[in-house]
Design a protein around this nucleic acid. Structure first.
Lengths: 335, 335
DNA sequence: TTGAAAGCGCTAACAG
DNA sequence: CTGTTAGCGCTTTCAA
């Protein structure tokens, strides 16, 4: 039992054909006489030959692997996207190199470069903020890139996500319809376009449509953690809030428990809706009303989109951004 | 802007040195005169040269990427392990190819083979059951493999995890100390050694030590989902259970809510402890008492262990399994 | 300290 | 339908 590395050459010799022929049968090229194919296949089986993907990649300039940049796998929002990505990647015979970026600019760029060095055929990027530097890096490469569940305000790089503005409007509209007029907007960093531009825009719009004055004191900017929400109630109470829209489920669970632990009745005295409809929304009591997003599908569609770009398929979308449908489910955290 | 692929050859020409020299500076080989190194570095920078990792891999037979087989990234238990793995992988300049297996034997084997075809330098496997077939596949390859948070009952392949038997004993002991003598054991498939062998063993042992007769009707075998727990209360009630040990947090959240929704008082009428101390345990009310496992560390240590094996370091552990410390935190779900 | 040259294992024209 | 022949871009002896 030694460093037995069976190569295509060994197979060719044993089968008494050329390497080219072996290559053909391995790659399913139809131009091979059935008899020879059978013979080669037998030898491959007998020798337990396994094509070396690295050599293949070097020769063909295709690695059948795509890079996936993710802020943190540990966050269900992203891991769900990742699952969708991996599933369709597998479907199309691709593998995924997963790299955590912590949403950190330096890491993102550095990871991007090592992915490129590894010659990935494409890249799926998930992140909360796309800035100019990153956009520049993206433009420097000819490797296709698509953003999954993330937005590029400049709309220069292809992306797939939901219509955040409309979704937030729908959620807040529900709150307004119950008579609330002091509704908190609680989200992660407003510097993330998804919060500061889209969601906030939806929030403001629906307020305006209902003649409710926008009050800056009702905007609560935190991070995405459960912990951030856990201690927020006093601030909400001080602002005279009776309802809240929250941009992240874990954060929402924190907000909910924070209110509950303070003796507040939900939804009687305080209503809240969250944004991702992850399992968490149903594990807490009362269950959380939430915007629903087809996270798995966003990942899946992103990857599908990427395959089209990698194969230079003709029918790539005219528009660079694909919008998937969102929904809204009412549960016990709202009246 | 064309297919500009700058190769090591271009750099060599521009810098008026040989490819070998360029290779040396790129790889930090000390045998290069500072002056030449500087010159080469300048050209590299000017040409924006980026070494092709695939070519490198073919020539050196090292890809600096490791394969990670995971049942489902979407599960925090595993994604936390994965995060630990990725972080130390990055630290050691490795990248990770992440592949979901759904705990499915065929997929596992198939994924293993494509990983091997891609010439990964090592593999980290996470899965609930190691069977003979898989073990055979593992033994066929010379690529180092370590199990993270998973066990090989035969102890033939290296692994890192906690002492499940002892951990369960501690958790159940707490329940017993509160006077409970009809304690349910709720877990995923008993065919998974971690449940059927280790945890169950701990459960039986501590029962025996306290002269409590083992009752098979108190064993509830389900899957790992939240949903599975959500409907379990009637069965528990029928069995006259007053406490339960649960093998998975999501499952535990389901069990808890199932009891709560049936009007049962926790912990007054029903106590329960769970196993992974994920964030979920603190999001539900009452918060769940739980065994604590250093999940991130298990991932990190696994990867560190793997690097040692890949570098054939001398001081690889004598024993094939590394046990990390566990803990137990009491919260409101137990008296 | 540096260079020449032989591969690594496979694909992809190009002939035949 | 099959074989020949170049590489793909880099590492790695072996000499110098």
């Amino acid at each position: 039992m030694e460093k037995q590395t069976v190569t295509i050459y060994d197979v060719a010799r044993e089968a008494a054909v050329s390497m080219a022929t072996v290559s053909r049968v391995v790659n399913g090229n139809p131009n091979v006489k059935p008899a020879t194919r059978k013979k080669v296949l037998e030898v491959i089986d007998r020798l337990d030959y396994r094509p070396n993907a690295v050599a293949r990649g070097l020769a063909s300039k295709k690695t059948t692997t795509v890079g996936v940049i993710i802020p943190d796998v540990t966050n269900v929002y992203f891991s769900t996207l990742a699952r969708g990505i991996d599933d369709v990647a597998t479907m199309y015979k691709y593998n995924i190199i997963l790299a955590n970026s912590d949403d950190n600019k330096e890491k993102e760029i550095q990871v991007l470069n090592t992915l490129l060095a590894k010659q990935v055929d494409g890249i799926i990027f998930m992140g909360n903020h796309m800035d100019d530097q990153l956009r520049e890096e993206f433009k420097r490469t000819r490797t296709p890139i698509v953003l999954a569940g993330s937005v590029d305000p400049e709309n220069e790089v292809e992306s797939v996500h939901i219509d955040y503005v409309a979704a937030v409007k729908e959620a807040v509209r529900d709150l307004i319809s119950h008579g609330n007029d002091r509704i908190a907007f609680i989200s992660g960093p407003l510097s993330d376009p998804i919060n500061g531009e889209y969601r906030l825009k939806g929030y403001k719009e629906i307020l305006a449509e209902n003649n409710i004055e926008f009050d800056e004191n009702l905007i609560f900017e935190t991070d995405y953690s459960y912990h951030a929400g856990e201690t927020i109630w006093p601030a909400l109470a001080a602002a005279g809030v009776t309802a809240a829209y929250v941009g992240d489920d874990r954060l929402a669970a924190g907000v909910l428990n924070s209110a509950l632990d303070a003796g507040v009745k939900v939804p009687e005295e305080f209503e809240l809706v969250t944004s991702n409809n992850s399992e968490i929304t149903q594990m807490v009591r009362p269950k959380l009303s939430s915007i629903t997003q087809p996270l798995y599908d966003i990942g899946a569609v992103s990857m599908r989109y990427l395959t089209k770009m990698m194969n230079k398929e003709e029918d790539v979308e005219e528009d660079k951004t694909i919008l998937l449908p969102y929904g809204y489910v009412k549960r016990a955290s709202t009246k």
